[in-house]
């Protein structure tokens, strides 16, 4: 009896908790989550190279090259399902910092152009990542410039 009771109680608790857990783990707009994850991968790999460029981390040619190669790959991933109309901060509020400007006149074409520039800058970085610590900073600059160009046009600044 008591065993049956605890089973029932367990089932009731599970029924109550599961939707909340599901919402916590899988809620949110999938496009927003995908692009934020993509940005995190950029940031992580930039951090590996940036730490060496700044002299905070000892230079390691293999690690620098691997991170730079990752960046090149990331610029080649198709993002067409990330940046879909209806997912700006005008639509979703604080869930995203994407400005509606991306979907307004010429916005998308501009973003695509910046994406192309970013790919070229990442290739430039990958071409010199094994050449020593001194090569990193100057090659990282053009990458950062494209990050900034896109954020300036399409991202609501942090509070």
């Amino acid at each position: 009896m008591s065993f049956t009771r605890s089973l029932i109680a367990g089932a009731v608790v599970a029924t109550l908790v599961a939707p909340a857990a599901f919402a916590g783990g899988h809620g949110g707009n999938p496009a927003v989550k995908a692009r934020q994850s993509h940005m995190q991968l950029y940031a992580h790999n930039l951090g590996v190279i940036g730490g060496m460029a700044r002299g905070n981390v000892e230079y390691d040619a293999e690690a620098a090259q691997a991170a730079a190669d990752n960046l090149v790959l990331l610029t080649q991933v198709s993002q067409r399902s990330y940046w879909v109309p209806g997912t700006s901060n005008a639509d979703l509020g604080e869930e995203t910092r994407l400005l509606p400007a991306l979907f307004e006149d010429g916005g998308f074409a501009k973003a695509v152009e910046i994406g192309g520039n970013l790919a070229a800058a990442a290739e430039g970085l990958a071409a010199v990542a094994s050449d020593g610590q001194a090569a990193l900073g100057p090659a990282l600059g053009p990458v950062g410039a494209q990050c900034g160009a896109c954020h300036e046009a399409f991202q609501q600044p942090n509070n």
């Binding site: 940031a43 992580h44 930039l46 951090g47 940036g50 910092r97 950062g144 954020h151 300036e152 600044p157």
Partner: peptide, 16 residues
Amino acid sequence: TGFTPDFDSAGGGMAS
């Protein structure tokens, strides 16, 4: 560079 310590990148007016 516009890079924050965690390698986010400046946006808005600060990018300029």
